[in-house]
């Protein structure tokens, strides 16, 4: 188990009800982390991406592959598609 900071933005933050949390996880890839979180409580089902696409960044690096490694990561962020500019 490793301790990571998970950050939520925008609609995901509103559904989960918190902007960040530090938890111990056993997952080694993003896909497994999402499943691990969903086992905690139903709010995390938003991360399944049924209503909108889920984007994520590992240590502030934007990734698209759910099989991306989170080994050694300190911070993982989940957010909806970006709407800057």
């Amino acid at each position: 188990m490793i301790k990571v900071k998970i950050i939520y933005f925008s609609r995901i933050r509103e559904v989960i009800g918190k902007s960040s949390e530090e938890i111990y996880i056993k997952s080694e890839i993003v896909r497994d982390l999402i499943e691990e979180l969903q086992a905690i409580s139903s709010e995390y089902e938003v991360l399944k991406g049924k209503d909108f696409k889920i984007c994520f960044a590992v240590d502030q690096k934007l990734l698209t592959d759910l099989d991306s490694s989170i080994n050694g990561a300190k911070e993982i962020a989940f957010f909806p598609p970006m709407t800057g500019g």
């Binding site: 933005f9 598609p81 709407t83 500019g85």
Partner: peptide, 26 residues
Amino acid sequence: IMNLLKTNVPFWKKEISGNEEIWLEN
């Protein structure tokens, strides 16, 4: 650069109109 700012940089916009709040999508 502007096209990438809209889709690749972590900002999110929410419209607030009276009691209604809507997250915008590109």
